[in-house]
């Protein structure tokens, strides 16, 4: 039998996307101990909050295994965009024409996918970053991100003592930093926020470990 028709659509995808998908075929991820797993914390700076209209201006990501983050192995991308909203500049400080070295959206996608591979992604209010990324992938005729996601906001709430869970308001990244005593340098740059998110994640993991909750089921359950 010929199953070619099944893969027909896929054959139109560029190589880098097929490579990215290919990495998910071997499903060994879940068996590995958490401490040996490569995690990627990432953050995006955008022109706004509308996933259709707004654009990603910058992507920052840090990778870590165990509790060590290597500075020279971080990702910091600035994107060329036609859409520009002056009102968002006061948050992220990225101007339309700056001295920063910029890449096209497609180039950024290639670099990002090659960096994250099939690892677990961590972001604060992850749904927003995921939607922005997926929307960008869609614009270039690609599929959605296949990676597992962990939202630090959600995870923190879950890690809190049961007596406070009911009246816990949604927490911003700044709130979490205050609660967990993470230094907030470089807030509102994509890479800075990615590093902060990574530290927040590690601190929450520490709390969970103490209570023996540190397992994949707990981390990835929604």
């Amino acid at each position: 039998m010929n199953f070619n028709w099944l893969f027909k659509k896929k054959q139109n995808f560029p190589d880098f996307w097929n490579d990215y998908l290919h990495a998910f075929n071997s499903n060994i991820k879940k068996q590995e101990p958490i401490t040996n797993t490569r995690f990627i914390a990432f953050d995006t700076e955008t022109t706004g909050f509308n996933k259709k209209e707004d654009r990603i201006l910058s992507i920052g990501a840090v990778a870590f295994v165990g509790k060590t983050i290597q500075v020279n192995n971080s990702l910091e991308l600035y994107l060329e965009q036609d859409i520009f909203k002056p009102e968002s500049v006061k948050i992220h400080g990225l101007m339309k024409t700056g001295s920063l070295e910029k890449v096209t959206e497609l180039e950024a996608i290639k670099l990002f996918l090659a960096y994250i591979k099939n690892d677990v992604l961590i972001a604060h209010h992850a749904n927003f970053d995921r939607n922005m990324m997926n929307e960008m992938l869609l614009r270039h005729g690609l599929g959605k991100l296949k990676n597992k996601f962990i939202d630090t906001g959600y995870l923190y709430k879950k890690s809190k003592h049961i007596i406070y869970q009911e009246n816990l308001k949604p927490l911003s990244l700044d709130d979490l930093c205050k609660e967990l005593n993470v230094p907030t340098v470089d807030r509102h740059t994509a890479t800075g926020d990615a590093l902060i998110t990574a530290l927040v994640f590690l601190k929450i993991l520490g709390r969970l470990d103490k209570r023996k909750h540190l397992n994949w089921g707990y981390l990835l359950d929604k």
């Binding site: 500075v71 020279n72 971080s74 910091e76 920063l100 070295e101 890479t191 800075g192 590093l195």
Partner: peptide
């Protein structure tokens, strides 16, 4: 490539 984290490490 710009590396903001390295810059912050430097600052410290």
């Amino acid at each position: 490539m710009k590396n903001s984290i390295a810059e912050r490490v430097y600052d410290f």
